[in-house]
């Protein structure tokens, strides 16, 4: 019984770090601007399809596409705010919700129009296969995704904590008016936050595409819902919180399925989420810092 639990822990951490990276982008935008991007999964889908098509048609490695997709999604995020979201900022929250929902449909059906609705996978990734050690099997792409997640989270932390842009983002998130008084162009900071958030999502999408089937209708929802849960569990506006939330979800999912009935894998996650939020509404990270 020991080995299956260890296996579940390893699987949980690996998938949890992937959840965490997707959630980090969502959490950044949510935390800075108080906007929930319902099109988050669809934004990730853009990076997934760029990876899929470049890999299938030009045999370009997803590793090479990591910076390409990060840059592409930064531009998409920056542009999304500057062209669309900015105009809804002074309106009711419902307008923002409907706006991102409209983006969701536009991106999803745009992809279906150009690439078709069928399920696709990447077959020529050089880091393929799996290994087994001490009875625990792990796939190489899953391990690589976890490593890239950790590096990206570290980079995000560095940008937010050490760079002048990061400080401006944090200042804007804490008090928009005070930031404006201090000479910060908050609109540019919001656009940059969208850019950074979606760049992280682009990196996540690139790596996740290497070892998960991609289906334009099903894939975005799975990762968006997991991201919402991770952000809610970890703590709003905290990148580390989102990552910890993602890992907790991965662990609960896999350990629960290993020890209990695997048929109710998702139920275990949401029971833990509800219980956690009942006792600590600000998320796990705030609870840890309070102790």
């Amino acid at each position: 019984m020991v080995l299956p639990i260890f296996g579940a822990v390893v699987d949980g951490v690996l998938i949890g770090l992937a959840y965490g990276l997707v959630a980090a982008g969502l959490g950044l935008i949510w935390g800075v601007m108080d906007i929930v991007n319902f099109a988050h999964g669809e934004h990730m889908l853009i990076a997934m399809y760029v990876t899929l098509l470049a890999s299938a048609n030009f045999n370009i490695s997803p590793i090479i596409l990591l910076p390409v997709n990060a840059a592409l999604m930064f531009v998409v995020g920056y542009g999304t705010y500057a062209i669309i979201i900015k105009k809804t900022m002074d309106g009711p929250v419902l307008g923002q919700v409907l706006c991102t929902f409209g983006l969701l449909l536009t991106i999803r059906y745009g992809i279906i129009y150009f690439a078709g609705p069928s399920t696709r996978t990447i077959n020529n990734f050089v880091v393929a296969g799996s290994t087994t050690a001490y009875g625990i099997s792990v796939s190489y792409p899953a391990v690589l995704t976890a490593i890239v997640s950790l590096l990206t989270i570290g980079l995000l932390y560095f940008i937010l904590q050490r760079s002048s842009v990061g400080k401006a983002i944090r200042a804007t998130a804490q008090d928009k008016q005070a930031a404006q008084v201090m000479g910060i162009n908050t609109n540019r900071i919001y656009a940059t936050s969208w850019g950074i958030g979606l760049a992280a999502t682009g990196i996540a999408g690139t790596m996740i595409a290497t070892h998960f089937p991609i289906q334009p209708n099903a894939t975005p929802g799975i990762w968006t819902i997991a991201s919402f849960a991770a952000v809610a569990l970890g703590g709003l506006g905290s990148i580390f919180g989102a990552v910890i939330g993602g890992v907790v979800i991965g662990l609960v999912q896999n350990i629960g399925a290993s020890l209990l009935d695997p048929s109710y894998q998702q139920l275990y996650v949401y029971i833990v989420l509800i219980v956690a939020l009942l006792y600590q509404r600000e998320g796990i990270l705030n609870w840890v810092s309070d102790q």
């Binding site: 299956p4 579940a8 399925a257 009935d261 695997p262």
Partner: peptide
């Protein structure tokens, strides 16, 4: 016993496979 899962949210079936192996 019969094992089910939610197709709309599943990302891994490793636990189900482990149960079958056991």
């Amino acid at each position: 016993e019969t094992i089910s899962y939610d197709a709309s949210s599943v990302t891994s079936l490793s636990a189900q496979i482990q149960t079958i192996q056991d």
